[in-house]
Design a protein around this nucleic acid. Sequence first.
DNA 1: ATACGTTTGAAACATACGTTTGACCCAGAA
DNA 2: TTCTGGGTCAAACGTATGTTTCAAACGTAT
Lengths: 219, 219
Amino acid sequence: MAQNDTVDRILDAAEELFAERGFAETSLRMITSKAGVNLAAVNYHFGSKNALIHAVFARFLTPYSQTLESAFDELEANCKGRPPCLHTTLWALTESAIRMPHRNERGISIFMRLLGLAYTQSQGHLRKFLEEEYSEPFGRFMRLLKEATPQLSAVDRYWRIQFMLGATAFTMSSSDALRDILQNKLGVDTRVQEIASRLVPFLAAGMQAEDPLLVSSPA
Amino acid sequence: MAQNDTVDRILDAAEELFAERGFAETSLRMITSKAGVNLAAVNYHFGSKNALIHAVFARFLTPYSQTLESAFDELEANCKGRPPCLHTTLWALTESAIRMPHRNERGISIFMRLLGLAYTQSQGHLRKFLEEEYSEPFGRFMRLLKEATPQLSAVDRYWRIQFMLGATAFTMSSSDALRDILQNKLGVDTRVQEIASRLVPFLAAGMQAEDPLLVSSPA
DNA sequence: ATACGTTTGAAACATACGTTTGACCCAGAA
DNA sequence: TTCTGGGTCAAACGTATGTTTCAAACGTAT
């Protein structure tokens, strides 16, 4: 009975601690003491700290990528023939994230924050792991984006996608703190879903901005 | 003679290593061996690793904030009475960053990456240090943004500013890696200045997007 | 009940970290 | 010259890390 329980308790604790402190700043002893399990359990069940990090990502990324595939299928089915527009493509991403079953209320915040950390913290092994495991839904999303913005050059599109990823990962990764600040400053209460519905128009407008006038260097 | 040299060599090495590896992942031994100085020199000249991090930021952030103040002064002088528009306000930021004297070609990248890390990596002492030292130019920038987007509600503006910060911090914090990827994929070489000139229109378009239609929660 | 593979537990492992120490060097003042 | 004080150096400090060990406890099938 308890064998599976130990694994899940470790994953829960690790997920939460990684999300609030980062990977290098979170020790196995913090994780195991928060989880209430023995220190050696991590290396017994997962093999190493890096493998634990991979397991934490796999636990929420695998169901998410499946949800995403379905959403993309539905999207393409609805727009028979013609490529789906930018708005709907972006909505498919955020809706899939929101619709996913989460363990608790903070689940969606943790989910976003971990994704942001994966990009930000320069963990070579993580990037490699994610590329190997989840290249397909990522590539499909990129293809949809390309079809939804045919007016952009490849270089323009590349950078604007990075800008979108940044705005999303950053905002969502600190959505808890940002919501609290807004609550204190303006007395406004905000739901994650509402943040998403503000973010999508911002991103879509940015993606479809007029071509930038590239300034020449002053020398 | 060599005493000042040691301080600068430490700052140079620390700046570079912090930028490419982050703060927690960079040890004092890496820094001192790269700088060619003794390990104890860091604690002798700076007092602690955290104080070294502050010194690294102060060395480029203090001249930058001064350049920024001048740019804002000039901006408001040019638009006598009327508030400066969004584009010019954003450009003042990026131009100040580019125009600053940098030690070498990679200086601007390092500058950007460090700024991104400051936002991303949850270093409590760093955030506190930056807030205490550089709150004035930041507040002034916020005031300019407010005047440049009078059509936005306070809540809308709040979230869109977060989106802008996210896109900027995220992109700049990994600008080196993103440039390398683009180099490999499309064979295109990119300058930091070019990234900025692509980013500004994206941000301005996002800020000025149509009011979002807030979707009602499905329950 | 006994035997066996799996899981836990406390302790130790080797290594790396930030920081401190005290001897040493060497310029300039007495 | 001697003294002084800022700067450097190798070495060690104490602590924390990821990982390993091995005996004890557990669960299950015989």
